[in-house]
Write a protein that binds this DNA or RNA. Structure first.
Lengths: 120, 120
DNA sequence: CAAAACCATTGACAATGGTCCATTGTTAGC
DNA sequence: GCTAACAATGGACCATTGTCAATGGTTTTG
């Protein structure tokens, strides 16, 4: 499929998709028609973009994502790095979740306090 | 206390603290000595900076934090906005946590897949 | 009292994650 | 065949979140 369709399916702008491609998060091939220079995207990139969004939400930077996705691809030779990297990231995300839950408590308490103030 | 102590206690740089103050996340007063222009910080700002860090971790931008902290201060008149704002934010953080947990699953699965590949 | 450490202010710089624009070319629909 | 919509490329631009350096003054300390 072409970039427009990827954009429509993923909800991202074409510019963003190209930006991600420049940064190595996805890739495309040259397309058959030799009349143009349009790129062709595999259907799987949509899923991949989905994952990118999840990972970003979890605090991954684009540089980290690039590494992570490379590991998904051909995790053969340098598996040591990959494992350590993942281990780190997992711990990081876990920690982040814990702290978010704490903060959620703060938010709820604030809401509560506010409600009381109103009733009074 | 002066900015240096705040920095030491909070673990943030003086520049960052000033940056936060410029952006309305904390404030200071003028200090008694009229020989200098040093600012004085209340002890509570350290706790406040702590909360700022938590909130940022949970995805708050500085602009949002500013609003939130203002509500904590004098949530009297416009409590409607504050409540809606908090409600929104709570839902947002909850959603974020859920997604982070999903992604954590992906990370673990990847780690698992990698481990299997190695054993093979 | 001299030097080291601290403070305020200003403005430049930087990294991250995009977004927008202009230009040029291609394709699709009427 | 014309026009609208789509695509590629390059570079400018943007907001956010800080960080750094220069300058000029103040305080602390040995």
């Amino acid at each position: 499929m072409r970039i427009g369709e990827v954009a429509a399916r993923s909800g991202l702008s074409r510019d963003t998709i190209r930006f991600y491609e420049r940064n190595g998060l996805i890739n495309s091939t040259k397309g058959n028609e030799r009349t143009n220079s349009y790129r062709t995207y595999d259907a799987e990139v949509v899923a991949r973009l989905e994952m990118v969004r999840e990972a970003q939400n979890a605090g991954f930077t684009i540089a980290e994502l690039k590494m992570f996705l490379r590991q998904l691809e051909y995790a053969d030779g340098n598996t040591f790095d990959a494992d350590a990297f993942l281990q780190n990231k997992i711990a990081e995300v876990e920690h982040k979740i814990e702290r978010a839950q704490l903060f959620l408590g703060t938010l709820r308490a604030t809401q509560q306090a506010l409600a009381n103030k109103v009733k009074k």
